[in-house]
């Protein structure tokens, strides 16, 4: 047995393992059917600018959009918020916190297989209006609720 065939075998084994890893990678990677991460919108510092970067200028208040959250959050680091839209053809639900350093907290693109009802937990630096922004039928609608924070969620 010479050195060469051994090293060749090892090389082939390694190549095989790499190939397998690559295959797993493609299987695990989510198929992104919708938009890429909207960096500009997440980093913008004013509400009008955030709306603009989301294409949501001219969003109007709607009674068919609901934001469900308690009036007072004891811990700003963990504020449960739920958004419900009764509008037909709802395709997107976002949560925005007016007085956070960056307003946009989370954006959900939902397909026709979803009930437009999403719950998550967000951080709030201080008492602020929380806006639920809904895209339905290509237009944007909002619901706003003030949540009082007794203990801030940022910087602590």
């Amino acid at each position: 047995m010479t050195f060469e065939p051994l090293s060749r075998r090892r090389l082939l084994t390694r190549a095989g393992a790499l190939g397998l890893l690559a295959t797993i990678g493609t299987l695990v990677t989510p198929r992104l059917v919708l938009a890429a991460w909207n960096k500009a919108a997440f980093e913008s510092k004013t509400l009008p600018e955030t709306y603009k970067l989301m294409g949501a200028e001219g969003a109007t208040e709607s009674g068919d959009v609901q934001i469900l959250a308690s009036d007072i959050a004891e811990n700003g680091a963990v504020v449960p918020v739920q958004a419900v839209s009764k509008l037909p053809d709802t395709t997107q639900i976002s949560f925005l916190v007016e007085k956070n350093p960056n307003m946009l907290a989370a954006l959900f693109d939902i397909g026709p297989d979803m009930v437009p009802d999403v719950t998550t937990r967000i951080k709030m630096g201080q008492t602020s209006n929380v806006v639920v922004l809904v895209k339905a039928g290509g237009k944007y609608f909002t619901a706003t609720k003030e949540i009082k924070v007794t203990l801030g969620g940022c910087g602590g």
Binding site: V78, D109, G111, P112, D113, M114, T119, R121, K123
Partner: peptide
């Protein structure tokens, strides 16, 4: 195999994120 929802999050989603949603069907 069907994607029903795609979310984009910023850093102001809470630590150890919780998420609840409803799928038709």
């Amino acid at each position: 195999d069907k994607v029903v929802m795609e979310a984009q999050w910023g850093p102001s989603v809470s630590k150890n994120p919780f998420l609840a949603f409803k799928i038709k069907g």
